[in-house]
Amino acid sequence: MTRPVDSGVILLARLMLAALFLWGGVMKLVGYAGFVGYLHSKGVPLVHIAAPVATAVEVLGGIFLVVGFKIRALGLFMAVYTIATAIIGHDFWNITDAAVQRDMVIHFWKNVGIAGGFLLLCVTGAGRISIDGARAPRGGLSSSL
């Protein structure tokens, strides 16, 4: 059970995470050919499947974050997705140029931090200001008897 202020903070966290993923997903759609080329350059197998899946995960995940739908499961899924994208997309250990490597290190650890935020959502849930919150039974004496 969360206090009203907690639900507001959880909503803000959801919206902040959603902004990142909605933006990324829309940019993948707008520059789809470039995204496919990037995946090819990283050696991602089955790019014809990976590209639309990644785009859908980011757009749909962002929408689910905004409305607060299935947040506990989404939090776990998005944490795993974010770590996977860190390993595939920010593989600093394969970079020889010092400036590019430093940039990739920052992006890698940023993704790890984002995954931590998703794990917190997995534990806290969506809060009251959400579809999940609206569907949850309200506590009270009658519900605990």
Rank of each mutant, 00 (worst) to 15 (best):
M1S: 12
P4M: 04
P4V: 06
D6K: 01
S7D: 15
G8S: 09
L12I: 13
A13F: 11
R14V: 07
R14F: 06
A18C: 04
W23C: 01
G25E: 01
V26K: 02
M27N: 04
K28F: 03
L29Y: 04
L29V: 09
V30G: 01
G31M: 02
G31A: 07
G31L: 05
A33M: 06
G34M: 01
V36N: 08
Y38K: 05
Y38F: 14
L39R: 03
H40M: 12
S41H: 05
V44Y: 03
P45D: 08
P45E: 04
L46I: 12
V47N: 05
H48I: 03
H48K: 02
H48T: 12
A50H: 05
A51W: 04
P52C: 03
P52V: 03
V53W: 11
E58L: 14
L60V: 15
G62V: 02
V66R: 11
G68H: 05
G68S: 00
F69Y: 14
I71D: 01
I71V: 15
A73Y: 09
L74E: 06
V80W: 07
V80R: 02
Y81C: 09
Y81Q: 07
Y81F: 15
T82L: 04
A84Y: 02
T85F: 03
T85M: 13
A86G: 12
A86I: 04
I87M: 07
H90P: 10
W93L: 12
T96V: 14
A98H: 13
A99D: 15
V100F: 08
Q101W: 02
Q101H: 12
M104F: 12
I106L: 13
H107L: 13
N111T: 06
N111M: 05
V112I: 15
I114S: 07
I114E: 00
F118L: 08
L120N: 03
L121T: 10
V123H: 09
V123Y: 11
T124W: 12
A126W: 09
R128Q: 13
R128K: 14
I129P: 06
G133L: 09
A134S: 14
A134P: 06
P137A: 08
R138W: 00
G140T: 01
S142Q: 06
S142G: 01
S144H: 11
